[in-house]
Nucleic acid binder design. Structure first.
Lengths: 253, 253
DNA sequence: ATGTGTGAAGTACTTCACAGCC
DNA sequence: GGCTGTGAAGTACTTCACACAT
């Protein structure tokens, strides 16, 4: 059990690479925008630009899902939206609980991108008795004591932890014991979970530290001998959004 | 300019792999905890467990920084804290501005992990005139009109965007024009930036969608022929925290 | 003509396994 | 004897480049 190592020898759920899965939501967002503008078809080049990746990667990604495009033409927007949604499991309804209703928890509760994507905030839970009953984003906050009952009554399998770091592991254990098998963790802690439970982590301070690292490099290169050549080769990261295609996004209030 | 593609031929800033950089903050956090408990040394095995990675990876990561361990003994906690902090550029002070002071922006402003890690919230900026002057986390909110002046007066190079999606690109453009070269984007949009500017993205809805994908697989495998073998091999992701070591974390209020 | 789908080549990251130092 | 540091092997992901369908 401990920190729950796991070697994941070839986890590839059914042949779709994890890196591809992480990009599908990006494509879906771009496609949804096109759909709203009633654009009927897109080329891999256009869609890739909108999603911030390169077109070869996008075509390869789609090839794992099937052959949904038409050579010489492109992809049918509506059809692709459906296929990706289905692949991601967004055609079904996912009740979600948010535990820890501070500023962050409230921000998450208010996040509009939820309902639109198959997610439904089933309940807000907080340890502070003073919060109980107070509505946040139109949903009354419930006390932690009710956690197990809420999970079971609503058939919740996805939990969001937005508590302080000190409470996170305990909340996590209770969520898992009650039947939650996927956790999105905003607390700056490494959570231990049994096999079969997925944890994803979102950590502001880590992101900032990564930015600081690159920022420092930029400053150094500027100062250090400007070998022109070196300066040119310097840092051209920029786009492709975040040093590695991965990573996710919250939503402002 | 467009979506600002970039092939980043061998960006590796100075030989440290991006994947390693992304883990340094994790190690740093674990080490800081050990330091607070006055633990003098750690083995790669122990530290790896605390950080949620495996020990071979950790040793390899550290080998990119130098030979800071002692064979047969382990790593000196204080010394490593210093070396990693320096490598990440945390020994200097990074003034940061947060734009968009809704629930999320407020949550970020209140995040304690800031000051402790070399980051300082230099200013909070919001487009709503009604917010101007109101203190959030003890810092008075300033109006967007002041953005350029704030950036320049404080020498800010890192900006956090927590505005609604619609405002993000415009805010981003202004930040970049004013001199910001690293952006942490919480708005669910792909930002276009010129070369030399780093963008990292944090997106709640993408994380949830990735969880939903795996959640769906779990359900499917349960139902589908339980080839015992298949069920056993099933999904053993779990720990290693989030399908790929990467990703970051916000902090609750 | 145009743009998809994909083997093949290239690159990045991880894990193994063990020599070498304490 | 214990634990680091690292070449070498293995795996995962990306990019190229072009055959092939429309």
């Amino acid at each position: 059990m401990a920190t729950g190592r796991t070697h994941r020898p070839a986890t590839r759920s059914r042949g779709i690479p994890e890196a591809t899965v992480a990009r599908l939501p990006l494509y879906l967002r771009a496609l949804t925008a096109l759909s709203e503008r009633s654009v009927p078809t897109v080329s891999s080049e256009e869609l890739a630009a909108a999603a911030g990746v390169n077109s070869a990667k996008l075509r390869k990604d789609f090839s794992y899902l099937g052959s949904y495009g038409t050579r010489g033409v492109g992809y049918d927007v509506e059809y692709l939206v459906y296929q990706i949604s289905r692949e991601l499991g967004l055609t079904q309804d996912w009740p979600v609980v948010i535990v820890g209703i501070g500023n962050l928890g409230a921000a998450l509760a208010n996040y509009g991108g939820f309902a639109s994507r198959g997610f439904r905030v089933a309940a807000l839970i907080d340890a502070d008795p003073a919060m109980a009953g107070k509505p946040v984003a139109g949903i009354p906050v419930q006390h932690t004591d009710e956690l197990e009952k809420i999970i079971q009554d609503n058939g919740v399998s996805i939990g969001v932890i937005a508590t302080p770091a000190g409470a996170a592991q305990q909340v996590c254990d209770r969520l898992v014991a009650a039947g939650v098998t996927s956790i999105l963790n905003f607390a700056p802690t490494v959570l231990s979970v049994p096999d079969g439970v997925d944890v994803r982590k979102v950590d502001l301070s880590i992101e900032l530290q990564i930015l600081a690292f690159h920022e420092q490099r930029k400053a150094g290169e500027e100062a250090g001998a400007g070998t022109a050549q070196q300066a040119a080769a310097a840092r051209s990261d920029a786009a492709d959004q975040g040093p590695d295609g991965d990573v996710p996004a919250v939503m402002p209030a």
